[in-house]
């Protein structure tokens, strides 16, 4: 384990048996399943922040519009959704103004989708650097989720501007106390993306097939999440298996609650949200374990 304190001279040798046992680190084949090395990650927290900064700075260097791209992407998607799903397909979305409705869904969905896709390639994309130098591998997915959080913050600001506009000019937007759950929802979403991303990144080192699956899988998953339609559309008895499919998706209640807090429209159910939380914790735990197991040997298989 790396210590923060770096002595300028090596520790003075003392020929006692006690000092022999004072190892700073033991490298061995298989550590205990739950030995996640979180303390190491904490020691490397500066690195996490530098990675976040790197992601941020490098993405928009040499672009004319720079960070404005953060706004353009969700706005254009929203307009497209309004035209296709609201204008052409006429999927009912309740009383809420379509612009706010879609933008809310897209903002939080993008956060999840981008965090997931970029964490899922952590091992394969960083094979070169991972193969040469050791640092806690967890810092990489963590920094990715954090830099996506920053991006989400910016897109959330855009959403808030639009939302405030509708709040003051119309009476179709009804924010309520569940708005206070928003930070928790964002954390849940981030952890879920982190957990799933780690599982995928660990497995793609061996089975590249999963990388193919993930790219369109994320797109498909959006339709299994109430992003472009409210959950209320499918809670009827007649919907049967479709209803259970959507409800089994832990993202469902997160997106739905997020929109409910802002718009006062949609479904909110503590039980659904509790299920999402439990699923997130489970996935995160599995993800961390799998990730830690793979990080030790992935240089041999990637």
């Amino acid at each position: 384990m790396q210590t923060l304190h770096v002595p300028q001279t090596p520790p003075v040798a003392s020929p006692t048996a006690a000092s022999e046992d004072h190892w700073t680190e033991v490298i061995q084949p298989r550590t205990r399943l739950l030995d996640l090395g979180l303390r190491q990650v904490w020691n490397y927290r500066d690195l996490v922040m530098l990675f976040v900064r790197r992601d941020f700075v490098s993405t928009y260097k040499q672009t004319v519009l720079g960070p404005i791209w953060f706004f353009i992407q969700p706005l254009l998607t929203t307009i497209m959704f309004m035209v296709v799903f609201n204008g052409i397909a006429k999927i009912p979305i309740g009383d809420a103004p379509p612009l706010v409705f879609y933008l809310a869904g897209i903002t939080i969905w993008n956060y999840f989708a981008q965090a997931l896709t970029s964490t899922s390639t952590v091992f394969t994309a960083n094979a070169a650097i991972f193969g040469k130098v050791y640092f806690p591998r967890l810092t990489m997915p963590l920094s990715i989720v954090l830099s996506n959080l920053v991006r989400f913050g910016i897109q959330l600001a855009l959403f808030l501007v639009v939302w405030l506009f509708y709040l003051f000019t119309t009476d179709k937007v009804h924010p309520n106390a569940y708005l206070l759950l928003m930070p928790a929802l964002v954390v849940l979403m981030g952890l879920l993306a982190l957990g799933l991303g780690m599982i995928f990144s660990a497995l793609t080192t061996k089975y590249r097939d999963l990388a193919m699956l993930l790219t369109f899988g994320v797109q498909l998953l959006m339709y299994a999440t109430p992003v472009i339609y409210p959950l209320a559309n499918i809670t009827g008895e007649a919907d049967g298996w479709k209803k259970w499919l959507i409800l089994a998706n832990p993202l469902t209640s997160i997106v739905e609650t997020f929109r409910y807090g802002f718009l006062g429209e949609g479904t909110f159910n503590w039980m659904y949200l509790g299920y999402s939380t439990a699923a997130t914790i489970g996935i995160l735990l599995v993800g961390t374990i799998v990730f830690n197991k793979v990080e030790k040997s992935f240089t041999d298989t990637v």
């Binding site: 790396q2 090596p10 520790p11 190892w23 490298i27 061995q28 084949p29 193969g131 050791y134 040997s297």
Partner: peptide, 18 residues
């Protein structure tokens, strides 16, 4: 193995210092 880039299959290494 010593630089921790890959894990050993058997045995262990004890290290004092960075």
């Amino acid at each position: 193995v010593l630089s921790k880039v890959t894990a050993p299959t058997a045995g262990r290494v004890k290290v004092k210092g960075r």
